[in-house]
Design a protein around this nucleic acid. Sequence first.
DNA 1: AACATTCATCGTATTATTACAATAAATAAA
DNA 2: TTTATTTATTGTAATAATACGATGAATGTT
Lengths: 110, 110
Amino acid sequence: MGLTKTEKFTDKQNQIAQFAKVFGHPARVAILQHLFRIDSCVCGDLVLEVGLAQPTISQHLKELKQLGLIKGNVEGTSVCYCIHKENWTAMKEIMSEFLDQDLSLQQDCC
Amino acid sequence: MGLTKTEKFTDKQNQIAQFAKVFGHPARVAILQHLFRIDSCVCGDLVLEVGLAQPTISQHLKELKQLGLIKGNVEGTSVCYCIHKENWTAMKEIMSEFLDQDLSLQQDCC
DNA sequence: AACATTCATCGTATTATTACAATAAATAAA
DNA sequence: TTTATTTATTGTAATAATACGATGAATGTT
């Protein structure tokens, strides 16, 4: 069917998956890393930086924006993007809770 | 096209995306959480726990195994799965480096 | 106003992912 | 050996994701 059965899972599980999915493409990872590296906001040079076509970058930016991880600000003819600090921190909280589960209890039976 | 242009990105970026992608489905999140919760290994009751069909679970387990995040051990007619501790720790290292980028330098111009 | 620049959106081809029925493979139990 | 149990694999239908050309929208420049 190709349709994720969201209703079978908890809100938390769906939320983790949603964040993870947006990081599940190297272009979006590259975009975010670039936004972190450049301490001011950045616009269309992401196209040059990442090396994909402009509509493709725009599409990836849209997904990052929809999840709230970045903000976009129109500045004249270009658009300035940056990390959404508060939301990034909130996301990190959720992802860390998942990633940092206690391994010491694990039996490693295999 | 629908084909990720892996060659445009660094190994690190592709690796981050690959780990993130496997967490990008709530069923796999649920499977991993269950493997963490149960301090011994677990087999086919993941089907009951998660609520998807057996071939679907088997497919998700395969992906987690291929990335090295879980191990599977045949025990009689059933298979015992558990977290691969070392690889999980290594993955966490890589993901943390990405998630924990320094926000304090960010200008928040938008 | 006319043109240029930058980004978003639309349309669409291609590939990937998800889910499951059917079936095979492997082992245990009778 | 036959039967049951458990998991993996195969095949396939349906949906999602990726990428980009073409085009539109918005603003700046001349």
